[in-house]
């Protein structure tokens, strides 16, 4: 397996009491898979993602990527943050070049790579702007271009489109799906939007809270282009709804 999470446990102390954010979570991910971590707020999605990305240490259990134990973040596995994480004092172009500077890519080549990825995310002509001169959706595109520019093996995304309006979000979902197919990256994507997960994922990891755990893993049997209104799409979506007990009778009962 490419990514192996074995019996991951993570506890936090909250107001003196111990809180289990991850309770014996095990998960295997293949190279090139698009995985969505889906679940209600507080179920440990971010905790799991940050642990795999190397930002957070587990209390017990292990995480391996390509056979190597994860101990810290690596430039080979890029995280795209919800609030974009762009450096506001750098232009769009300089933001995209950030990781290339670490990799000691010569200046000329840096420009070319930045231009290539800005084009890929549809932002040519915005090179010299500063992040605050862009919309939220454009900023997230810059952040994606910056991540892709270092040619990472894995891309981690923590609710990357959470702050965007529905239409921009759909556009970016289309784009990220295309990019992931084209560049053949392994992507782990956190969301609490069921449709988003169904639209993007090869497999959806459904998580539950208190303690944070995996409830089930749903394979999405949709290939190629995904139509949000097709019967297949709605069928998968309904299956996920059921997992959360949010459909039909039970949902109504819940409201009453």
């Amino acid at each position: 397996m490419y990514i192996e999470v074995q019996n991951a446990c993570k506890k936090y102390i909250q107001d003196g009491a111990e809180f289990t954010a991850l309770d014996n979570v095990s998960l295997d991910i293949e190279k090139g898979e698009f995985i969505c971590l889906l679940g209600p707020s507080g179920c440990g999605k971010s905790t799991l993602l940050n642990a795999v990305a190397g930002f957070e240490k587990l209390n017990s259990g292990s995480i391996r990527i390509d056979g190597t134990e994860v101990s810290k973040p690596s430039i080979k596995n890029i995280t795209i943050f919800q609030n974009y994480g762009l450096l506001p004092w750098r232009t769009v172009e300089k933001n995209v070049e950030l990781g290339l500077e670490t990799l000691k890519v010569p200046k000329e080549e840096r420009h070319q790579i930045a231009a290539k990825y800005l084009e890929l995310v549809g932002l040519m002509g915005y090179e010299k702007r500063f992040p605050h001169q862009l919309s939220g959706g454009q900023q997230q595109r810059v952040s994606i271009a910056r991540g892709l520019a270092v040619n990472p093996d894995i891309i981690f995304m923590d609710e990357p489109f959470g702050a965007l309006d529905a239409i921009t979000r759909m556009k970016l979902q289309d784009d990220i799906l295309k990019i992931s197919r084209k560049a053949h990256k392994t992507i782990i994507f956190v969301t609490h939007d069921i449709e988003e997960a169904v639209f993007l994922a090869d497999r959806i990891v459904v998580m539950m809270a208190d303690p944070g755990r995996i409830k089930s893993i749903v394979k999405v049997p949709l290939m190629g282009h995904r139509d949000r209104t097709s019967a297949d799409f709605l069928h998968v979506r309904d299956k996920i709804f059921e997992l959360f007990n949010m459909k039909s009778d039970e949902y109504i009962e819940y409201v009453i």
Binding site: A53, F55, K72, P73, S74, I75, N77, I78, T79, F81, N83, G85, L87, L98, G99, E101, T102, V150
Partner: peptide, 12 residues
């Protein structure tokens, strides 16, 4: 802190 996380991620 997100700037520091980004820096860590890009190995600065």
């Amino acid at each position: 802190p997100v700037y520091l996380k980004v820096s860590q991620n890009f190995a600065i």
